[in-house]
Design a protein around this nucleic acid. Sequence first.
DNA 1: GTCTAAAAGTGACTGTGGTCATAATTGATC
DNA 2: GATCAATTATGACCACAGTCACTTTTAGAC
Lengths: 207, 207
Amino acid sequence: MTPELDLSRRERKKEETKERILEAAFALFRKHGVEATTIEEICEKADVAKGTFFNYFPHKEAVFGYLSERWVTDAETRIGEILEKGGHLWPKLRDLFIEFASFYEEDRELSKHMMMEWTRQMHTPDDPLCRRWDELGAHAVRQLQARGELRRDVPAERASQVFGDVYHGTLVGWLGSPQPPFPLKDELRKRMTMVLEGLAPPAKEGK
Amino acid sequence: MTPELDLSRRERKKEETKERILEAAFALFRKHGVEATTIEEICEKADVAKGTFFNYFPHKEAVFGYLSERWVTDAETRIGEILEKGGHLWPKLRDLFIEFASFYEEDRELSKHMMMEWTRQMHTPDDPLCRRWDELGAHAVRQLQARGELRRDVPAERASQVFGDVYHGTLVGWLGSPQPPFPLKDELRKRMTMVLEGLAPPAKEGK
DNA sequence: GTCTAAAAGTGACTGTGGTCATAATTGATC
DNA sequence: GATCAATTATGACCACAGTCACTTTTAGAC
């Protein structure tokens, strides 16, 4: 999770400072809420000057980019593992994404802010993280197509975007739904299945 | 567009003030950009005190809620008109939404902020505008189902949400795509068609 | 007209976000 | 060790967002 390997002292210190800021920020967010936490409080807890915070993050909510980054990295790893193995991909991919939803169920408020920040990043042309996410999705869809689990006549990018939109939209809808919210994982499964079935390849006689 | 009908003087003045603030805000947004415009500048141009601004909007970007409101109202009207008439609904609905995309093409920066604000509203439980939007979508889908243009075995709410997610996701993707962006309307048509075809009712022998 | 309560408007005030010139630290070179 | 350039840290500083106690306006009641 923290690849410190063989960095110079300077680089290590930099990592440490960033880590301290992140830890302080999330601890305070969880304790007092995101809105109620000021950057100065984060800095005090992390024992750095205010200016230092801005050397690492352009604004308070940008620390949520760290969560997105971890999220995407995890997804890359887990999807990579699934693609290596044989058998039907779809049920595994679907269940993986449903499993990932646990993260959102854990802390709604934090998740809302992470989502807002993710959306902000989406509005940034050529954001590297969004790029990675897009490529990951397209890659997965190409594999589904290669194994005959998805129609081959739709561009992988488009199909992947549609899946992503539905996944993302469901999460946002859930985060905004009044308490108690609808069952997230169940709804995710149903919507994703709905979309997949619409993109299923034409049935062949055999099997 | 401005239903002044028979309001008391007080109500008329209130409307006027709000209108002045909105006009001033959008004029400045277009001239100097949203970030660069301060609330104080908006107030000066609108000739109101700063406190007055906050009587109408909780923060600067909330003025974009006005655009969303108009957007949804327009959609309600236009969709209502379409539903009243006969014939195939889908091509008309699809073209309507594609036509609505013109709004986003007109001013990308403004659209980004409107989208961000819309997303923020989505995170607010029981936001009345989001409710209206949801109900409108579900209603339209129910009509599609009633006329046999969409499978009847999927809940209208779910299908509507999926359409909404894809529409919204495509717009966000377009707003964040590097210049020159991909052709928005073309992509919208293709993605929406893709989803609809996946939800088409099983073909009957006749026709 | 006067009186009153409620609504709308006001701007001085305050706390925070964010900047930037400067200081301190690092590691490479001699 | 001394010197230097590049990187990182600092906190005084300023502009702005947002609040709130107060003033003004409005629309009835009499």
